[in-house]
Design a binder for these strands. Structure first.
Length: 497
RNA sequence: GAGCCGGUAGCUCAGGGGUAGAGCAACGGCCUUUUAAGCCGUGGGUCGUGGGUUCGAUCCCCACCCGGCUCACCA
């Protein structure tokens, strides 16, 4: 018999013993919480001697014959409880003897300090509300140092509940992610943006370069695809007169998995009619500052060990100038494909698979510029070829009024003045469709209805996309996107596991 | 998809051609203010899976599975 199977059968036996004592844990539907552990610690002087009621999980047990200390963890904080046979009486003591680490219990008793000075609850009443059938991977902790815990990353992602119980840092990070999304909403709502929901299941995808997931609707007998962006639906709403809209929604891209990519992730897109690129830049600066202050209580956040002050405006740099500065390739190299490929080879990158100047520019950006952009920076004026939905730059028809924002060398947003010329848009979509036909699975087909919407007339509009997972990674200090996603995509275990 | 690294007790890890160890957790005993509680004792492992080499494999070889990192991919 394995040790773990042993624990489980022992715990189930204890459950039966509890029931035979007339105490059925699963019969409880509630247990009052008068004060949370954090509150008891904070307000000890005022609560000393008063009776509190607290349910929570047992995370440590120190038994000493006819008395015991245990820790109850609740809401991310722990408090010690002291239980003594003479104080609770024999029946309750019998129940307590069947309590294990991991069980959910409820206690009532008065607040006091032990002689070693630890704020505790002197238990007078005890109830078991749920048994834990397994040994929990709880770490031991002293003076902020941890000895053990759940370190296996695979187990942490597959069994997030154990990770949340065992690792306070995981709990804090995932709560921070939730708060970042919440404060993003609050900021946008306060500025008059309307939150909307648009379809996840689409006939054709668009708005980004990515391969979609494909599924099937039985009743309609049609293939449907999971959206890869929110863009084309939201811009239809701008056409319809909803001047400030946003959606925070899940999008799905059928591509590789890495520390920065999960097949499904949360994207914020917003569109503001009668606003231009610079207005959106200002919005990003204010939004990130708002989130930093509200979630982390500070305008300054440490990103990769470096203090970043979000009260200051972000740096602005022209994309081609940035490439000249960091890669040493002058803008004239991008006059035609041949010289662009030659320039790429010159800096030591194969140009074999490159078929557009825009693609080469973005490759150089990624390789040489992005890692340098530690301070919050907007890179401006992206190539038209790789920006099929952005307005053409008035000074250079090969560029667009598009920018991306970087912090700590990582891209966090993509934004532009939206292309609202239906004829130009049709040309660009047709070019995409040709690429799709030629075998580029990340290109999009022509969206006739979207073009019709533009023909109705879309006001000049500024748009923005922020990967919320990436934002949470950067602000929360996570190395992997999986750390800010509750249940990241993993391969399934074999059936017997 | 490629390369590298990893998978040993419930957890965290060590070990290494003669079929395995520690701490925590668990179980039994002692202990009525402990806190990495302590003391005494006990149990627990198809060493990721399947083949191969060998008298003998957890260890060496091959394949596969799962994960991590890097790269590719990701306008």
């Amino acid at each position: 018999m394995s040790a773990e199977g042993d624990v489980r059968s022992i715990r189930i036996r204890e459950l039966e013993q509890l029931r035979s004592l007339g105490h059925d844990p699963y019969a409880f539907e509630e247990y009052p919480t008068s004060h949370l552990p954090a509150e008891i610690h904070e307000r000890f002087s005022e609560l000393e001697g008063t009776v509190v009621s607290l349910p929570g999980r047992i995370t440590s047990l120190r038994e000493m014959g006819k008395a015991s200390f245990a820790d109850i963890t609740r809401d991310g904080a722990r408090i010690q409880v002291y239980i003594k046979k003479d104080d609770v009486g024999d029946p309750a003591w019998e129940i307590f003897k069947l309590v294990d680490i991991g069980d959910i219990v409820g206690v009532k008793g008065e607040v006091f300090k032990t002689r070693t000075g630890e704020t505790s609850i002197h238990v007078r009443e005890l109830a078991v509300l749920a048994k834990c059938f397994h040994a929990l991977p709880l770490g031991k902790e002293k003076e902020g140092q941890r000895w053990y815990g759940l370190a296996d990353v695979e187990e942490r992602y597959r069994r997030r509940y154990l990770d949340l119980i065992a690792n306070p840092t995981s709990r804090k990070l995932l709560i921070a992610r939730s708060r970042i999304v919440q404060e993003t909403r609050r900021y946008l709502d306060a500025r008059g943006f309307l939150e909307v929901e648009t379809p996840v299941l689409e006939h054709e995808v668009g708005g980004a370069a990515a391969r979609p997931f494909i599924t099937f609707h039985n009743a309609l007998e049609i293939e449907l695809k999971l959206r890869i962006s929110l863009e084309l639906h939201l811009k239809r709403l701008i056409v319809g007169g909803l001047d400030k809209v946003y959606e925070i929604g899940r999008v799905f891209r059928n591509e590789g998995i890495s520390t920065r990519h999960n097949p499904e992730f949360t994207l914020l897109e917003l569109y503001q009619a009668y606003a231009k690129m610079e207005d959106i830049q200002q919005l990003v600066e204010e939004l990130v500052r708002h989130v930093a202050v509200e979630v982390f209580d500070s305008e300054t956040i440490t990103v990769d060990g470096r203090a970043v002050d979000f009260s200051k405006p972000w740096h602005r740099i022209d994309l081609l100038e940035a490439i000249e500065r960091y890669a040493g390739v002058s803008p004239s190299a991008f006059d035609d494909l041949e010289s662009a490929k030659a320039a790429l080879e010159r800096v030591g990158i194969s140009s074999e698979d490159e078929d557009s100047v825009g693609g080469i520019i973005e490759k150089l950006l990624e390789r040489f510029v992005e890692p340098e952009l530690l301070e919050p920076t907007f890179v401006e004026n992206y190539p038209l070829e790789t920006s099929p939905l952005a307005k053409t730059h008035p000074a250079n028809p090969r560029l667009t009024r598009r920018f991306e924002g970087y912090i700590g060398g990582r891209e966090i947003c993509n934004a532009f003045s939206e292309l609202n010329d239906p004829i130009d848009q049709r040309t660009r979509m047709e070019r995409q469709a040709e690429m799709l036909a030629a075998g580029n699975e990340e290109a999009n087909p022509v969206d006739e209805d979207f073009l019709y919407a533009l023909e109705i007339g879309m006001p000049p509009t500024g748009g923005l996309g922020i990967g919320m997972d990436r934002l949470a990674m950067i602000l929360g200090g996570a190395d992997s996107i999986r750390d800010v996603i509750l249940f990241p995509t993993l391969r399934p275990l074999s059936p017997e596991e």
